[in-house]
Computed example of a mutant assay.
Amino acid sequence: MASGDRIFVQAIRRYCANHGIRLDVRADGWLLAMRRGETRHFAFGYDIGLNSAIAHRLANDKSATAEVLALEGVPCIPHLLFLNPKLGRNVVGAAWREAMLVLLHDNPKGVVVKPNEGTSGRSVFKLTTEVELDHAVGEVFSMNAGLVISPYVAIESEVRVVLLDDEPLVVYSKQRGSDWRHNLDAGAKPVLMEDGEVHTACVKLAVDAARAIGIAFASIDVVRVDGAWQVLEINSGVMMEALAKLHPELVQKTYDAALDRVFGEAR
């Protein structure tokens, strides 16, 4: 096993070795080709290949996810889309910056600007002034075709639920460090949740969100704001690198369950 493998790749290597599946690792581990007999399956990035194309695209688009959840009546944090003006006036329109300023004015506690696609909390900005807005927008648009703006809310707690066919395989809270964000890459620590009222509420909301976009295997982040739980985002690629440092057996078991579905194994 290559020492530099991500946990995701290591888990798939173990599964394939234990089930007589040939594995070809390409593109430095970002493309995995699994073959058993005449059947071949692919994993790409952190996507294990269980979700439909439309569910995958919806989950990877924060604005689209929020729109669908709102249509289905699932409580969620709004994410308003703005396309990069470099795409052209006919695509973007002329009043995009004015619309951003309206959002800033309407949210005196601040707004959050981040790429419309992407994970791990990179290029995420909390801001309250026009100068900060212009800086954040410039940074995000320098590398992305679109961004989303959300009202800043004081998140009391954040929980991640990993679902497979509506079954919660992993439920943990993100214990925030000194950063205002709950991202694991920003220093938050995963803490497994025991059964109870909060666990039940978070799982129910995650299942409602998964059903709304028709996704089979996903990690869903839910947050409590003013005592009420809302969906923050849905991730089609299930990344558990930080959790694996504390609970490697649970992470392996979770990926094993998903791969059993990929290869039609009985659970």
Rank of each mutant, 00 (worst) to 15 (best):
177 G>I: 09
192 L>M: 15
182 H>W: 03
226 D>Y: 11
164 L>M: 13
213 I>P: 01
232 L>F: 10
210 A>Y: 04
202 C>Q: 05
239 M>T: 01
240 M>V: 04
247 H>R: 14
187 G>N: 04
236 S>W: 02
178 S>H: 10
213 I>R: 03
203 V>P: 00
185 D>P: 00
179 D>R: 15
215 I>S: 10
209 A>W: 02
207 V>L: 11
237 G>H: 09
240 M>D: 06
229 W>R: 05
246 L>N: 07
167 E>S: 12
193 M>G: 07
235 N>P: 04
244 A>Q: 05
165 D>H: 12
166 D>F: 05
228 A>P: 00
173 S>K: 14
185 D>F: 10
238 V>W: 01
204 K>H: 10
217 F>I: 04
221 D>M: 11
230 Q>D: 00
193 M>E: 10
247 H>F: 12
226 D>I: 01
191 V>D: 10
177 G>D: 07
169 L>A: 03
170 V>W: 06
178 S>M: 06
234 I>T: 04
217 F>A: 08
166 D>C: 14
172 Y>A: 09
200 T>Q: 14
162 V>L: 14
183 N>E: 06
193 M>W: 08
177 G>L: 11
174 K>P: 00
195 D>T: 14
191 V>R: 15
202 C>I: 05
173 S>N: 08
168 P>G: 11
218 A>Y: 03
161 V>A: 13
224 R>W: 02
184 L>D: 01
175 Q>I: 11
170 V>S: 06
178 S>C: 01
219 S>K: 06
247 H>D: 13
220 I>A: 05
189 K>M: 13
231 V>Y: 01
184 L>V: 05
225 V>P: 02
215 I>Q: 12
180 W>F: 14
177 G>V: 09
160 R>A: 09
241 E>N: 12
212 A>L: 10
240 M>F: 07
233 E>H: 11
203 V>I: 12
198 V>E: 09
199 H>D: 00
164 L>D: 10
248 P>T: 08
207 V>F: 06
228 A>Y: 07
203 V>W: 01
218 A>T: 06
237 G>T: 04
164 L>I: 07
185 D>L: 14
184 L>Q: 02
188 A>K: 08
226 D>V: 02
186 A>L: 13
195 D>W: 13
173 S>T: 11
182 H>Y: 13
200 T>R: 15
190 P>E: 11
210 A>N: 10
212 A>K: 14
198 V>W: 10
184 L>G: 01
204 K>P: 00
238 V>F: 06
191 V>M: 15
213 I>T: 05
237 G>F: 07
208 D>R: 15
237 G>A: 12
232 L>G: 03
227 G>K: 09
215 I>N: 12
240 M>A: 13
229 W>D: 01
